[in-house]
Design a protein around this nucleic acid. Structure first.
Lengths: 166, 166
DNA sequence: TAAATTTTTCAATATTTTCTGAAAGTTTAA
DNA sequence: TTAAACTTTCAGAAAATATTGAAAAATTTA
């Protein structure tokens, strides 16, 4: 397979999977393009390589910058903005996780908590509150665990657990 | 807050968050309805309580059954099918995770692997293959970790780690 | 076996999400 | 200060997704 071909396929692949990770397709494709580009690219190059509109390119680049997945780069003697991707995939994962937590987990817990103060006191209420509390516990737990996971790189002991074969 | 009110809100909430977990809104709402219902419900009751069509109710119930998030229940002297939800949220999480792995992680790894055989051999290729391999490592790692997490309930040592305060 | 009831399917429709591109806004160089 | 170069915005268009409901299929009862 030719390199250029593989890169194109990677862009489509990452675009599809991005949607499942809370990143929309266009944004994920721009990310993939920059990830696999040897040099930083400017808005027009992104538009051209992905055949998307200026508006779309701009929005994706802005959002990716906000997520800290890409950086603005200046090129001497050129006043356009160029963009370059964070290439350490571990950092990428950390930043995506952080963003999702901010947008999904935190509001969920806040909202769930409000649902626990019910007027009636009977078995039905107890069941309902039980479910809500179970969900809260579960979400909190998974969140703590993912925080642990995100700190692994600095921790030899847990790191070694991860490297174990199935 | 009245119990019925809280249940309605929970259904909306779970419907929204479901979308972010790979479950579509209708399906997540049906799940929430059954989770918070004291008794098993039949298709018409689901249609009525959520004001959705017969087709939608049927599809959601079938899919939830396939995911093992709800069970068919028979009621004596009634030939309709009734449905009841798995109430152990830990099992719920395990089954959702399993399904997402099957639909997302496995195809991703298969596809990524194919992208590594590039004709040219130069620095550009090395960079590209490096990124692909980093992603594979990361995904594999997270997957192993989530498997560990899913086995925690049976493991006192790791369970205690999770219960630690921040 | 046939009628009655329940379940499933899927083409048509409605809704939501995403994308475009022209116009407005901003920055830079001279 | 002005004009050219670059960036951002957002209303409308297009695409993708979800939902309906009536008809067909399947199942049960008698």
């Amino acid at each position: 397979m030719k390199l250029e071909e593989a890169k194109k396929e990677f862009i489509l692949l990452w675009g599809n999977f991005g949607s499942q990770w809370g990143i929309n397709k266009a944004m994920a494709q721009v990310h993939a393009l920059l990830l696999t580009s040897d040099d930083p690219l400017c808005t027009d190059e992104v538009m051209e390589k992905l055949t998307i509109s200026r508006g779309g390119a701009n929005t994706s680049l802005r959002e990716l910058t906000r997520w800290n997945l890409i950086y603005k780069v200046t090129v001497d003697g050129d006043r356009r903005e160029f963009f370059s991707a964070e290439k350490d995939m571990w950092n990428v994962a950390k930043r995506i996780t952080r963003e999702r937590k901010r947008r999904e987990i935190e509001p969920l817990i806040l909202h769930l908590d409000r649902l626990k103060s019910i007027d009636e006191q009977n078995e039905s209420t107890a069941n309902f509150v039980g479910i809500v509390e179970d969900i809260e516990r579960l979400v909190t737990r998974m969140d703590k665990f993912s925080e642990m996971l995100m700190k692994l790189e600095e921790n030899a002991f847990f790191g070694s657990l991860l490297r174990m074969k199935k």
